[in-house]
């Protein structure tokens, strides 16, 4: 009797499995446009993790089929890390997905050299320190070095340089999740494309009040020297913020802007360091 139960259960299970298999293989795609969705769906990892912001891989595929640009605006982090899948997705969506632009990395826009103006001995947290008289450093926009960002980072990618009292992000560990951006009370951290070559490491906000030179040894003084030094037209001067912005594609990594910067605010972004000349490591 027990054997009969086992056989019946097994037969029904096997039967339904077989029917699903046959249905999947034989049912024709009658609706126009769904072949494309199915094709995209096969490229996607099928984890249904929801990191892209859609309900699952299939609804992400639906959105991709409707609007291919979603692939760059809400990228699938799993596909991006797999060059083969990325290539397939590029081909099936017929758009160019450059991993160095879609992939984001955290850039900490402070070198932490602003002088200390009083001894802070309160709660060891940036958020607490920032609330006391605008922070214990002369520059009110400086990195406070208590590591609120390291606490939120799931990849252990951010560490605090205890000597300089400033956070540093590990390019290779960073996955660009953006948790540190929300975690920093000073709004120092920005997600930049992984292919960024020159990092502008100052968070100084000139329109507020102070000139950078007095507040910090490494603060931008808005002297425009980097802009004038660039021979490739890769620097665009942002007039509203009075800071340089960089065109990734035009920049040839000649390093002239870094050499010219009197304040050492500019620095090579981590990945580009290996390709550049050693002479640029002046600061």
């Amino acid at each position: 009797m027990n054997l009969a139960v086992i056989l019946i259960l097994g037969a029904i299970g096997l039967g339904s499995g077989l029917i699903i298999y046959l249905a999947n293989a034989k049912v024709p795609h009658k609706v126009q446009g769904t072949e494309k969705i199915e094709e995209i769906n096969r490229i996607l990892p099928g984890l249904n993790c929801g990191a892209c912001g859609y309900a699952g891989c299939f609804s992400y595929a639906q959105e991709l089929a409707r609007n291919a640009i979603t692939a760059t605006e809400a990228p699938c982090t799993v596909v991006i890390q797999n060059p083969e899948a990325l290539g397939c997705l590029e081909k099936s969506l017929n758009i160019n997905l450059d991993a160095s632009i879609i992939n984001k990395k955290a850039l900490i826009r402070c070198r932490g050299r602003s002088p200390v103006i009083f001894n802070y001995s309160g709660v060891k947290s940036c958020r607490a320190a920032a609330q006391l008289a605008g922070g214990y450093k002369q520059c009110p926009y400086a990195c406070l070095g208590f590591g609120d960002c390291t606490k939120v980072c799931p990849q252990d990618a951010i560490s605090i340089d205890s000597e300089k009292g400033v956070a540093a992000a590990d390019f290779n560990k960073c996955t660009g999740c953006g948790l540190c951006v929300a975690g920093c009370p000073q709004n120092l951290i920005e997600l930049v494309p992984a292919g960024t070559k020159i990092a502008f490491r100052c968070n100084y906000q000139p329109l507020k009040d102070i000139p950078g030179r007095e507040k910090c040894q490494y603060g931008c003084t808005h002297c425009l020297k980097c802009f004038k030094a660039c021979t490739d037209e890769a620097i665009i001067w942002n007039k509203d913020k009075a800071i340089p912005e960089f065109d990734i594609e035009k920049c040839t990594l000649c390093g002239k802007c870094i050499e010219e910067c009197p304040q050492c605010t500019l620095e090579l972004f981590t990945e580009a360091r290996a390709e550049a000349r050693p002479a640029t490591h002046r600061c």
Binding site: S16, I19, I20, A23, K30, V31
Partner: peptide, 17 residues
């Protein structure tokens, strides 16, 4: 078992037709 496989098949049919 029946319900799970039935819904799978129905979903597949509806999605494609």
């Amino acid at each position: 078992l029946i319900i799970a496989s039935l819904v799978q098949i129905i979903e597949l049919f509806i999605r494609r037709t």
